[in-house]
Nucleic acid binder design. Structure first.
Lengths: 162, 162
DNA sequence: TCAATAGTTAGTGGTGCGCAAATCATTTGT
DNA sequence: ACAAATGATTTGCGCACCACTAACTATTGA
């Protein structure tokens, strides 16, 4: 075998992510519309539930979007009473953004509505695989491994939700 | 424990996918630009490498976009000589779209360029986890488990690529 | 021959988003 | 105390992506 001509597939998951995210987002839009939400809102709410109480700049950072557009996005969410902007006590220029109770509730509803979509798009994966996928994505998004507490306290059998 | 109040996080991975795909796509754009490619092209090329020789309608289906926009996308790719449109022998109305050698080469180059980006965005995952992630996404995208041949014939050690 | 199908082209319009500029409140450095 | 920097907000511009429509061609199949 002289100088093997690179048979390493050299696969990257950027395109795959793009592809799946698109398919998911398209279906999601229709299911989310009745709730008055669009995919972008879901992303924001999800991030806020995870790392609530962050400044808008911080949000702009994690959402990787321009600060000025964050304002608009938050305006929409605040208009629906899903988030709250409080002034930071330490630095009164900053806004501390947080999910309201209504926001958390609406987010849950949306996630329930998305269950169907997920089933359609990720039909190729069994529940176990979807869970691993979730863990991996979560870890990738936060930069740190998912705290196992939440996952482990889930001895399969209490699927009360939805 | 009377009627446990839904402590199942009810997490969905749509928003997570959106989030990560976005982060990835943003960084990818800058790395891809020198190659004359945009993220959308990468998705198309990747799909074509996987299921080459499909009609444009089929492509429209898997890419989940309008047929008329597929035309434009393919025009760009064909203009660069990365894909080829041949008339189908059985039904001469149909176009059989396939990756050219140049296309495969360019795709590899792009994937190499994307390696850096992937490292930046998925810093939270070790190589093993990224591989599982890839397998899962691939399976989700194609609907069927990944054929293990390609993966297993990879006894870690021939990283000639890049 | 006629209806349906695959592709192409052009035009319209909406959405998402980056970017720049101007404003206001607040903090910080000198 | 004053100036400079910072966080948030608003407005307006412009581009990219994409769905949708309509009109046209080539081809197939009943």
């Amino acid at each position: 075998m002289p100088a093997a001509p690179v048979n390493q597939p050299e696969h990257r998951l950027g395109p795959l992510l793009d592809h799946l995210a698109r398919r998911m987002r398209l279906r999601a839009e229709t299911v989310l519309a009745p709730l008055g939400l669009r995919p972008r809102h879901l992303v924001a709410l999800t991030v806020l539930r995870a790392q609530g109480g962050s400044s808008q700049q911080a949000l702009a950072g994690t959402l990787a979007m321009d600060g000025t557009n964050i304002v608009g996005l938050l305006n929409e969410l605040e208009g629906e009473g899903l988030i709250e902007r409080r002034r930071s006590p330490e630095d009164r220029r900053r806004h501390v953004v947080e999910l309201t109770d209504a926001g958390a509730r609406r987010l849950s509803e949306a996630e329930c509505a998305l269950a169907t979509v997920e089933g359609e798009v990720l039909g190729g994966l069994d529940p176990g695989q979807r869970e691993t996928l979730y863990q991996l994505l979560q870890q990738a998004a936060t930069g740190t491994p998912v705290c196992c507490a939440e996952t482990l306290e889930n001895p399969p059998g209490d699927a009360e939700a939805c």
